[in-house]
Design a protein around this nucleic acid. Structure first.
Lengths: 403, 403
DNA sequence: TGTAATTTTTTAAGGGTTAAATTAAATGAG
DNA sequence: CTCATTTAATTTAACCCTTAAAAAATTACA
C-alpha cells in the first residue's frame, strides 16, 4: 500500500521460516535440529541453514551436552540440542501504579533475572521526569545490561499499538508522554499496555486457562478487565482492554470516579471506593489520602467480623462488579472470571451480590464459572504478561529484522 | 499446526501474487497488464505469467477493445485491457427477516443481475424446509446459474466463521441449522452473517464513511449494531456484531423482549416495542400479530402530530437507544452513527432523548456526530454488504484454491 | 516503408525449498 | 580393536518463483 516496496519473494519465505523455527524454540525450549524439523514441518536442510544463521547471529546457542546421552536412548549420531540464547537480548517488564514503579529484567529465555521497585507518585511528574526515573532504576538491577525493549503495564486506556496512553488515572496529561521520551534516552523500544490485559496474558499461560476463554478482573486502585477469547487476547477497538471499571453503574449522579465521571463501576468497587464507603466519606469526593493495602486489608477484616459499614461497602462493590460483568456477558457470552488484586481477597464476601446482580439482568441464568485466584500480588502477573509481550517482540525482530 | 502440510514455498508466493493481482482488478476494474504491474508492485513478467493463468482459468477476460485507442493516447503498442470475468462465478446475497426472504444474484463483477422475494414465516420451518425453500427461490431469477456461494444476512448472533447462527429471533431452534443443509443440496458455500454487520459493510464503501469509524444502527423488527473501526469491520468475540439490542436497559422486570429476557434495549426500541407501547399493550407480552411497515409508518405519523402515546413510545425508544449507545461509547470511543431501517424514519423525534440518555451517562460530553441515513430500505444494504462478503470469498478461492 | 514508442513476452540470474545422497558421530557385536 | 549399524546433520541437485534486462510484438507517424 505505502511506498515501501513489499516483496513477496524468497526473502520473505526465509523470514517466515526463521520465525517458525524461533517460535518452536520459544515454545519447546531445548530441541535438536531434527526435532525442530518435525515440529516446524520444514525440511532438515532448511533447519540446518536457518540454524546456522541463528547461531551466527547469537539468537540461539548450542546447549551443554551434559545429559545428551540420556535423551537419545538409542544408537546413532547423537542429537545436538539447541536453545534460545538467554543473553541475546533483554526485556524490562514493569508495572506502573499510582504510587510505585516496579521493574523486572528478563533474559531472552524469559527467566526473571532481577527486580527493582521504587515508591513514587507519578501523577506529579511530567513525561521527561518519569522516563528519566525509569532509566535510573535500571542501575538497581543485579546485572548491567541494555534492554532492547520495555513493556510497561499501566492502568487506563492504551492504544493497541502500545505506543500511546489514551487515558490513565495515575498519570498527569504531560506524564502520559513518557514512552516516547524513554525510548529516546534508552535507545530501546518502549511499549505501554493495560495492566489487566497483561494479567490475562500471564494467566493464559496457566494450564487452567490455556485452552481458553476467560476474563481477568483486576480489583485494586482501579477496576480492569483483561479478556481472552479462544486463546487469543481480545483487543477492543482502540484500547487494549475492555474498560469494565468505567461502565456506568449508577446514573450521572452516582459516586465520583477518578475519571471525573459519576457512577462508574470503579467508583463503587475499587479500593478507594470501598474505603470511602466503609468510612462513610462523601461519595461525591475522592479520598484525600491514598488508600493503602493495609487499609483494604483492615476493611476486609472488619467485614468478615459481621454486618456493618465495611461489609456494606464490599457488598456494594460486588453489585457494581456484577453489573459490569452483566453488561459484558450481554455483549459476549458469559466467560469464567479470575479475580486478581487486593479487592479479590474479599471475593467470598461479594460472591452473592455479584451473582444477584447478574440474575437481575438475566432472567434466565447464563452459565457462570467464577474462579478466584488468591494471588493478590497482581504485580507479578502484570510483569509476567509484559515479559511475554516483550519476548514476542524480540522474536519478531530476530526473525524479520528491523523496520 | 494441524496435519495439513503448510508450505512456505514458491507455491505460496505465487498464490499471494495471484491474490494481489485479482484484488487490483476488483478495486480498479479494467486495467492493462502494465497498469496492474505498477498497482500491484510486481514485475511485468510476473503479471504476464499470472494473467495467462487467470485467463486460462476464466477468472479474468480480455475486454472489448472498443475505446482502446482513446485510452492510450500516444504511440506504441496499445495496452490490452483486462477485467474480471463477470460470468466466472456467482454470488447469491440475501436477507432473511421474520416474514420474508429476499435473494439477489450478483455476478463476479459485483453487478446485481436479478432479485426475488417471498413472503414466508421462517419461525415455523425447520432447517431442511428453509434450505429447500431458498433453493427453490433461485428459479425465480432471470437467468439460470449455479451460484458458488450464498451469503445471507439474518438478525441475531452469528459465529464469526459465518457457519453458525448462535441465536436468532426469527428462526426456530431447528431452523438455525439450515445453512449446512443448504450447502449440501446446493453444492455451494453458505455463509450466514449478522444483518447489521452487512449494512455497515455496505456503508463502508460509501465515500462518506470510507475512511472510517462508524456504527450502523438497524432499527426494524430488532435493534442491531454493525461497527466499523478504522475502516475494518469490528468483530466481537464470537458474534459478528455487537448486540446493542440486548443490552439490558431496564432491570429484570422491564418490558419483555423476543429473546425472552426482560428490559433489553430491543424491548423498547424495536418496531414491535414501539407499537406495543403506542397501543398501550402489555409490556410483559409480545404483540400477537406481526407489526408491519404500515403500522410503524402510522405510529410515526401520529407522533409527528403531537404529544400522545405514539410520541411517548418513540421517546422511550430514543432513551433505550441512547442508553445502549452510552454503554458502547464507554467500551469504545464514541463513534458516528448511521440509523437505518423503519424506525430510523423517526430519528428526528428521538434525537433529544438519545442525546439526553448519553448525557446522563457521561457527565462530560463526548464528541457526538450522529448522521441520519434516510435509506429505510435496509434490505438493499444487507444484500450489498453480503455480496461484498461473497465476492471476497470468491477472490480468495480464485487466488488460493480450495481447502 | 522505416523508425520511434510502448506494451508484452522471453530469458537469464538469484534465492529459497525439498528430497535424496552424503558425511558425521556414536553404539555395539565379533 | 575393527567395522557394520544407526541416527543426525550437511550437502547436492532439481524445481519454482521473482526480477531485471533483452527481445519481440504492435501501433503511430513521417
Amino acid at each position: 500500500m505505502s511506498k515501501t516496496k513489499e516483496v513477496y519473494l524468497s526473502d520473505d519465505v526465509r523470514k517466515q521460516n526463521r520465525f517458525r523455527i524461533i517460535s518452536q524454540f520459544r515454545v519447546h525450549g531445548k530441541k535438536s535440529r531434527t526435532e525442530i524439523s518435525k515440529l516446524a514441518d520444514l525440511s532438515a536442510g532448511t533447519v540446518t541453514n536457518v540454524s546456522t544463521m541463528l547461531l551466527n547471529e547469537g539468537i540461539i546457542q548450542v546447549c551443554d551436552q551434559d545429559a545428551s546421552h540420556a535423551s537419545s536412548s538409542s544408537h546413532g549420531r547423537p542429537r545436538v540440542q539447541l536453545e534460545l540464547n538467554p543473553g541475546y537480548k533483554y526485556v524490562v517488564a514493569g508495572s506502573l501504579t499510582f504510587n510505585s514503579i516496579s521493574l523486572s529484567l528478563f533474559d531472552y529465555l524469559g527467566e526473571k533475572i532481577s527486580t527493582v521497585q521504587e515508591k513514587v507518585t507519578l501523577e506529579k511528574m511530567d513525561g521527561d521526569e518519569i522516563a528519566e526515573f525509569i532509566l535510573a532504576m535500571l542501575k538497581g538491577f543485579d546485572v548491567e545490561v541494555a534492554p532492547s525493549i520495555f513493556v510497561l503495564g499501566v492502568q487506563g486506556l492504551t492504544k493497541n499499538n502500545g505506543k500511546e496512553i489514551l487515558w490513565s488515572p495515575i498519570l498527569s496529561e504531560s506524564g502520559m508522554k513518557f514512552a516516547e521520551r524513554l525510548s529516546q534516552i534508552s535507545n530501546a523500544e518502549v511499549t505501554v499496555a493495560n495492566d489487566s490485559a497483561m494479567i490475562a496474558r500471564s494467566l493464559s499461560k496457566d494450564k487452567t486457562y490455556a485452552d481458553g476463554t476467560f476474563g481477568a478482573v483486576l480489583m485494586s486502585y482501579g477496576i480492569g478487565l483483561g479478556l481472552y477469547i479462544d486463546g487469543q487476547p481480545f483487543q477492543g477497538a482502540k484500547s487494549s482492554a475492555s474498560e469494565l471499571g468505567h461502565i456506568s453503574f449508577k446514573g450521572g449522579d452516582g459516586a465520583l470516579c477518578r475519571c471525573k465521571k459519576h457512577g462508574c463501576v470503579e467508583a463503587y468497587a475499587s479500593d478507594y471506593a470501598i474505603w470511602r464507603r466503609a468510612k462513610g466519606l462523601d461519595p461525591h469526593a475522592l479520598p484525600e489520602r491514598p488508600v493503602t493495602s493495609e487499609d483494604i486489608a483492615q476493611i476486609i477484616e472488619e467485614a468478615r467480623e459481621g454486618e456493618g459499614p465495611a461489609r456494606q461497602a464490599i457488598r456494594e462493590a460486588g453489585r457494581a462488579i456484577g453489573f459490569g460483568l452483566a453488561i459484558m456477558f450481554g455483549l459476549f457470552d458469559a466467560f469464567p472470571v479470575v479475580f486478581v488484586g487486593r479487592g479479590a481477597q474479599a471475593l467470598d464476601l461479594m460472591d452473592d451480590e455479584i451473582r444477584q446482580a447478574l440474575n437481575d439482568h438475566f432472567r434466565f441464568h447464563k452459565q457462570l464459572d467464577i474462579n478466584f485466584t488468591k494471588e493478590s500480588d497482581a504485580l507479578v502477573h502484570v510483569e509476567n504478561g509484559s515479559s511475554i509481550v516483550g519476548l514476542e517482540w524480540l522474536d519478531q525482530q530476530a526473525a524479520f529484522g528491523k523496520t
